[in-house]
Computed example of a mutant assay.
Amino acid sequence: MTFVLDDIINTTQDMIKIPSISDDLINLEKNIDYIYNFFVDTNLIIEKKYYNNKPNILVKNFEGKKADIVLNGHIDVVAGSDDKQFEPYIKGNKLYGRGSIDMKGGISIIMYIMKYLDSISYKDKKISLIITSDEEIGGFDCAYNIAKDGYIGDIILIPDGGSSTRIVNTQKGLNLFEVVAQGKSCHSSRPWLGDNAINKIFNLYKDLKETFENKTKNNRYSTVNLNKIQGGKSINAIPNECIASFDIRFTEDFDDSYVRETVNKLIINNSCTVIKSIFGSCLHTDENDKNLQKFKSIASDLSGGKEINFVKEHGGSDGRFFAQYGSKIILYRPDGDNLHTFDEWIDINSFELIYNSYLKFILS
């Protein structure tokens, strides 16, 4: 299996130099164009797709939408306070730069895997590379709509979680929604003559927390957050309207249908109305799943027999949008640290293990 470390390092550095912050459409486009040009001389099918003006790229070895295996990543990064963070440099075995571990190093790896598969005219499995541009702000335009449009796979490999000794098989699902509560305004000195809309939001918040949160479960439990609330126009009047946004992150203890149905029921019971909502499934692949075990065995063998563990993460990834269509998600990436901070880095010595683990899994 061909592996050229210098090429992957150079490609990673090239992409770090493009400050593709999540709301910077110009540089997001530049990064997508960089990936497009990387594949332009191959026999692969290349397609750009846009959702709410945000660019994405799909590279496939087959006609159609549904793949056997999807290689997935995102090129958007969190904004930094200093443009020098987009000037990559190497010190020892570490490549520093904004977006190095999250996740331009991982993207470089899967780009070279896809190009290698093309070089050997690989057609045994339908393989697609899907790169999005809004994961850092939720993935609600890109991955959400890509999966909804049918660009999914039986297995999704994402170098956006874990490490060289940790395979992520579980991440929380999410239910984000905005609601409005209507009441009746009156003078604050006579609240019995009105109906306080803010109280309805508070009651909904209380019911949601009592339903989903169980803080006794080793700090890994479902959470409910009231992220934004707006109500009232005067200090001496009962508010007749309140708008609020909620963020629920749920564990594998709750299935999708229960979360959807229960949340909707509580919203109605508290006389609120949904304005908009977004839903992402809990990402959970059973540890005994044959493909997950196969991947672990391959990675362990290639690492020289190091112990590799399955782990559960609090955070999420674009994998949640594919999971709700039945895809099995495997997150495994190079070593690195300081995501979203000034001195973000990735361990270039771990590139080869991730590359070979993904490639051998695909070929086997």
Rank of each mutant, 00 (worst) to 15 (best):
G280H: 09
E47N: 10
P55K: 00
G305K: 05
L28V: 08
L266K: 09
Y205A: 11
K148F: 01
I158C: 07
A299C: 06
E63V: 08
V180I: 14
K328M: 00
T223Y: 12
L226S: 04
L226Q: 02
V263P: 02
S20V: 01
P239L: 03
G139V: 06
S121C: 04
L58Q: 03
K360E: 15
D76H: 11
I275T: 11
T12S: 08
K54T: 13
M103Y: 14
F322E: 12
D337E: 11
I158Q: 07
K48V: 03
N56G: 06
E213K: 03
K65R: 13
A244S: 15
R190K: 13
K360V: 15
M111N: 07
E135G: 06
Y325C: 00
D141E: 14
S281A: 11
G183E: 09
L339W: 00
G105E: 09
G150C: 01
L359A: 02
D255M: 03
S234A: 09
N225Y: 00
S108E: 05
L174S: 12
K148E: 08
I167Q: 15
K200I: 15
D7M: 10
S121Q: 07
D41Q: 04
A147Q: 02
F212K: 02
L339R: 02
K125Y: 13
I8A: 05
S121F: 04
S357H: 10
L174F: 11
N72K: 11
D253Q: 02
N52Y: 12
E178A: 10
A181D: 02
N236R: 13
I127K: 08
I109Q: 01
R333E: 13
I120Y: 05
Y116V: 05
D14K: 08
L71I: 04
P334E: 03
P88H: 08
S303Q: 12
I69S: 07
M103S: 13
L292I: 03
